[in-house]
Nucleic acid binder design. Structure first.
Lengths: 231, 231
DNA sequence: CGCGCTCTTGACGAACATCAAGCTCCGTGG
DNA sequence: CCACGGAGCTTGATGTTCGTCAAGAGCGCG
């Protein structure tokens, strides 16, 4: 949040005091389920989570991957009913913020409210990026782009550097995120490896050629809106 | 907005008084362009608009279709820089709301602020629906779903009934929205016609069998969050 | 040691893209 | 009133990307 505008001391205090229970989820567990009407919002503090939806056929579409620092269901504060689920891709820890406390915050702190609003807008911008991937890009492009996105976002929150990061996610999950079959994910990853763009072994990704990977995935971080300015 | 929660008289007055200039766009014209830093937000009052992005290759992905009553770039109020464009699919009229006025609103009216926030959250929910379409559904399913979505939303704002609506949009634009080629759109539409699901002639769509079209497109209006409750 | 999960590879098929051509409709100007 | 032109729609032939099915290999875990 502090990356996009400066928070006042009282604002910081208000948001910190809204945090309640510490939560823990093991890999595969759901943080929230489609149809739920949660009483709190969840901020991930460690691990990877994802938003997804299941079709009756059992197919899964992952619509976003969430990292530590992400408010995965802040929208439930106003939408009330979840239109999708959030699951833990790895073991996760998190903090809950009761809707009741958030309501108080919005009543008293207009600027902080706008910053929370902004968080959800950046989420939506992420959805639009994802849409471009699914609609316009080939499987190798999408895959390259996803690696770029995860690395960039991890780097921003200080969880990755030197073009390397832990990514203990299965190829099946990758397929669900990229909208392609797990078999095809495998082939595409082979291809990226062969082109000396990345390595990916035992849950660790190393990006060997950032600029070529960015070009392949047509990645841009504009959608993250990383400029600090009055909002 | 009034469909999701009740507005007070002072809130109604505040939002109405924020409206400034009446705008007019002819078909194909852009309301806002990627990279812009608009000083106002635009509410469409007639016609169809769409959010889209262009790739360097010239391909276009349409990410949402907007109808009268939609605040097409409300997110620019906080995101500041547009990460996509908004174009008029048909002739459009609209109203501008200066960011400055919206800022005043958020400083004074917490509940109204939450309602504006909610508008952008419903937009994001729409993006997630679109993602499911592109990621998991076949071309005929996506197409059926799009017709369901447009009809449902038009019906809500009182612009369609009897399962019929004006839809003066080309098959090329449909392809850009559905992530398939225009040629394939044509074939799929033929198929829907042959199955007596719809007719589509001279810019008018008629849905012949709503429940079968809903089933084909696996459409649900849950993402529109049409329940009126305190937010 | 054996079981299950994930990754890997090959063969085959389906969905959709691309290219190309002809058609319909409609507005425009002579 | 008709000829013309252009935009959009329609249809066919061919090619590519990716899905599905199937089988085997590696690896961690009980």
């Amino acid at each position: 949040m502090q990356l996009r505008d400066t928070l006042g001391l009282d604002e910081k205090r208000a948001i910190i005091q809204s945090a309640r229970d510490r939560l823990h989820f093991s890999s595969g567990e759901d943080l929230v389920v489609e149809g739920d009407r949660p009483m709190r919002c969840v901020l991930v503090t460690s691990g990877f989570a994802c938003r997804y939806r299941l079709l009756p056929s059992g197919e899964r579409q992952i619509m976003a991957i969430h990292l530590p620092g992400d408010f995965v269901d802040l929208h439930s504060f106003l939408l009330k009913e979840m239109d999708h689920s959030v699951g833990a891709l790895t073991e996760c820890t998190a903090v809950g913020f009761p809707h009741e406390s958030l309501l108080q915050v919005t009543e008293r702190f207009p600027h902080l409210t706008r910053m929370l609003w902004l968080m959800t807008l950046i989420d939506a911008a992420g959805h639009r990026e994802w849409l471009i991937g699914l609609g316009l890009l080939s499987a190798p492009q999408r895959t390259a782009r996803l690696f770029c996105e995860i690395y960039k976002r991890l780097e921003i929150v200080g969880l990755a550097r030197d073009h390397e990061f832990r990514f203990p996610v299965t190829q099946v999950a990758m397929g669900d995120a990229l909208g392609i079959s797990a078999v095809h994910v495998n082939r595409v990853v082979q291809e990226l490896r062969q082109q000396d763009l990345i390595t990916w072994e035992r849950g660790t990704v190393r990006i060997l050629d950032w600029s070529r990977l960015v070009a392949t995935g047509q990645f841009s971080d504009r959608y993250l809106h990383l400029v600090r300015e009055p909002r």
